[in-house]
């Protein structure tokens, strides 16, 4: 099922959460909405789900305008950051809920519900927890149950709001790999919201970068990382150095800078202030002699040790690749 968001705006009082957002999502795609908090990504997800009404614009599913359709009728699977499991129901009943509330004519019989719930619990590998209550489960287990519950209604699209945001780093990593695999199995058009760039780049087919209620860039993970469309995307995804020049500001990734000999073309002189070892990588924190600008350079540990430099030394560095944005664009970010 394709999702088409057309010129959607949404204000909360004086705050503009979404400002004329247009986005096309292909059937079977896994798309990440990425941005800082308050950038409008969650609001867009809730507009697609029908939990918020857009002030302007329309949402289409498979070409059909569903802007005025009731939430109940949209057939959307939704997973909340804090799971929102029904606390007074067992895990089994949580997953069965969407089937039990169907109108009598479409409601499966008890045996069918049992079979279906069991199948879903097996899909999320938690069939042994059917009789427990939500508060007896760990965060990661709860989130997988929330996903099984959302899938029970055979949704046309799956929407996930910061699905791993409340989990610790290790569980988070496991779960996002698992989500990626699950998506590859069931091919359900899925949109998830995250403020974690690593998560977006690792899991999604395409990443939509949000800022101040507007889309800054839409692209594959490598596109948004390697060729950011704006200074904001540069700053938000990955680390970046900003170097003021005559025509504007140059953006250079730390790993795209080499330490060079004195006299090298484009070389900048800088004092090495601090060395941070990150396993196989080494991060150098420098201060450019001209303008006292802080700079970051990332090298492999081997390259670093072959240089034989230490904190306090003066080095020369040169960018291998840089992208210059006019000053006005840089200030807008």
């Amino acid at each position: 099922m394709s999702i088409s968001v057309q010129g959607v705006s949404k204000n909360f009082g004086a705050f503009s959460a979404l400002n004329d957002v247009t986005l096309e999502i292909e059937p079977g795609e896994l798309v990440a909405l990425l941005g800082p908090s308050g950038s409008g990504k969650t609001t867009l997800l809730r507009v697609i789900a029908g939990l918020e009404r857009p002030d302007r614009g329309a949402v289409h599913f498979e070409g059909e305008d569903i802007t005025d359709q009731r939430v109940q009728d949209r057939g959307v699977g939704f997973v909340f950051q804090h799971y929102a499991l029904f606390r007074h129901m067992t895990i089994f009943e949580n997953v069965a809920f969407g089937l039990r509330v169907r109108p009598r004519a479409q409601r499966p019989n008890d045996a069918e519900i049992h079979r279906k719930v069991k199948q879903l619990l097996e899909l999320v590998q938690l069939d042994w927890l059917a009789d427990r209550f939500p508060h007896q489960l760990s965060g990661g287990q709860r989130q997988r149950i929330a996903l099984a519950r959302a899938l029970a209604i055979e949704p046309k699209v799956l929407l996930l709001d910061e699905p791993f945001g409340a989990l610790d780093a290790k569980v988070r990593k496991e779960l996002r790999r698992w989500l990626r695999r699950l998506h590859d199995e069931i091919h359900l058009t899925s949109v998830f919201v995250t403020h974690d760039q690593e998560e977006a780049l690792e899991v999604a087919d395409r990443v939509v970068v949000f800022n101040h209620g507007k889309i800054e860039q839409v692209g594959t993970p490598s596109e948004v990382y390697d060729t950011p469309a704006s200074p904001f995307v540069y700053q938000f995804i990955g680390h970046v150095n900003e170097l003021a020049g005559e025509n504007g500001i140059a953006y250079v990734r730390p790993h795209e800078i080499d330490v060079v000999e004195r006299g090298h073309a484009n070389a900048v002189e800088a004092v090495l202030e601090h060395v941070v070892r990150l396993g196989p990588r080494v991060r150098l924190e420098l201060l450019a002699t001209a303008g006292n600008t802080p700079l970051e350079v990332e090298l492999s540990a081997d390259t670093f040790s072959s240089l034989g430099v230490k904190a306090g030394d003066t080095l020369h560095i040169a960018p291998r690749r840089a992208r210059v944005f006019p000053l006005a664009d840089a200030q807008a970010a």
Partner: peptide, 10 residues
């Protein structure tokens, strides 16, 4: 949220 989840489930 639980109410929203219930409505989304129909």
């Amino acid at each position: 949220e639980e109410e929203e989840a219930a409505v989304l489930l129909g």
